Computed example of a mutant assay.
Amino acid sequence: MDEREACEHFAGEIPDPPDAERMKEVLEQIQLYCAGTDARLAALKSKYANNIKVMSKLNEYDEIIERARR
């Protein structure tokens, strides 16, 4: 969950107007924190499908973030 939150944070940091140096930094952080989180989230949802409290938190995250951030 920490990685997913960091991923979402950096995905929201895309500079506007574009700044090449900041964009490079943000994209590096997105790659670091987002890679593999879609699969890990799906696995957690499968594992905790019967736990309402855990599922409540997991359902706060978009199911697909990696492809959306490329």
Rank of each mutant, 00 (worst) to 15 (best):
M1C: 03
D2R: 12
D2F: 09
E3P: 07
E3A: 07
R4T: 01
E5T: 08
E5L: 14
A6V: 02
C7N: 04
C7W: 14
G12M: 07
E13D: 06
I14C: 01
I14Y: 08
I14E: 07
I14L: 15
P15G: 08
D16G: 13
P17E: 10
P18C: 04
P18Y: 12
P18F: 08
D19L: 08
D19M: 11
A20W: 00
E21H: 13
E21P: 12
R22Y: 05
R22N: 06
R22P: 06
K24F: 03
E25M: 05
E25N: 10
E25F: 12
V26G: 00
L27G: 01
L27N: 12
E28I: 05
E28L: 10
E28M: 06
Q29H: 10
Q29G: 01
I30T: 00
Q31C: 03
Q31P: 07
Y33N: 03
A35G: 09
A35F: 05
G36D: 03
D38C: 04
D38I: 06
A39H: 14
A39F: 13
A39R: 15
L44C: 09
L44M: 12
L44A: 12
L44I: 01
K45M: 13
K45C: 07
K45G: 09
S46E: 07
K47N: 01
Y48T: 02
Y48R: 03
Y48V: 04
N50K: 09
N50M: 02
N50H: 05
N51M: 06
I52E: 15
K53M: 14
K53W: 06
V54S: 11
M55V: 02
S56Q: 06
S56I: 00
K57M: 10
L58F: 00
N59I: 00
E60I: 09
E60S: 14
Y61V: 04
Y61R: 05
D62K: 14
E63V: 13
I65C: 06
I65Y: 05
I65V: 15
I65T: 02
R67F: 08
A68H: 06
R69A: 08
R69M: 08
R69H: 13
